[in-house]
Amino acid sequence: MSQVSHALPTRPSVSLAPTQAVTLRINGQDHLLQIAPWTTLLDALREYLDLTGTKKGCDHGQCGACTVLINGKRINSCLSLAVMQQGEEITTIEGLGTEEQLHPLQQAFIDHDAFQCGYCTPGQICSAVGLISEGRARTEDEVRELMSGNLCRCGAYTNILNAVMEVVRNELKTGS
């Protein structure tokens, strides 16, 4: 040891952030990613997979723009770490309907002109899909309360409510 006392000074180690392999199942397809553990599900979707339908509004769970479905339940992808969603069925707006055959909620949003800039719309629609499968909202007041996790900066609430109510009513007629 004493022979090398004039070795190079130690430098602070500059290394890339440690990443790990994560498999996410999104819209029925497996995707293998190499990401750092602090990558949120929202950033994984947008920055690594080009699934930019899901939007980033506040990044703090306060606006609902990032809403996606995990095993059919709506959540805020900005507060979820991607590493924690391995093995789950993730559905984003890209997984709802096709261009030829829109999801009933997508069609209702068009029919009711339920957006202006459209930024909140993917989150609104994913949230409404979750709302309908929960089966707890039948009246307008119930839909308002249970859609309150989705803000619309343009204030298109009236038409959003009408669009969601149309699908809720159809579900009540045909379902249960």
């Binding site: 769970g61 995990i70 339940k73 709506r74 805020n76 979820s80 979750g130 709302l131 996790g149």
Partner: peptide, 9 residues
């Protein structure tokens, strides 16, 4: 409390 999305998480 919170929102439906947050309560699901």
């Amino acid at each position: 409390g919170a929102s439906p999305q947050l309560r699901n998480m």
